[in-house]
Nucleic acid binder design. Sequence first.
DNA 1: TAGTTGACGGCCG
DNA 2: CCGGCCGCCAACT
Length: 109
Amino acid sequence: MSRSDAFYEQVYQLVRKIPEGRVTTYGDIAKALCKEGAARQVGYALARSSSVSPPVPAHRVVNRMGVLTAKESFQTPWLMQELLVNEGIMIEDERVKDFELKRWRPSDG
DNA sequence: TAGTTGACGGCCG
DNA sequence: CCGGCCGCCAACT
């Protein structure tokens, strides 16, 4: 078990704690894991999350602006938005509407 | 083996 | 206001 594997697993566990209908950011996750500045690694971990078990709700993670930058990496580009809408999150121009209200922080859980 | 590429984000000129 | 740079570092070519 390398250091990075442990980091990935921590990312997955944290993302699984995001409540339905809420979203969080790469930066918040990195900071919560004491890796502030490594937001990019969080994104990389999530890019590989489709093959892990139990499943990771990676669609609930957006960038700091609330933009769905990850959508191109899902099975289909519209899947991410569809999943979020199903949870009651409104998307406007590839961005989470009322982002600050929907935003969830690890400290809330 | 070395170079490039990201599902990012803070900082600088 | 805004484009560009840099830290992060595993995966891929």
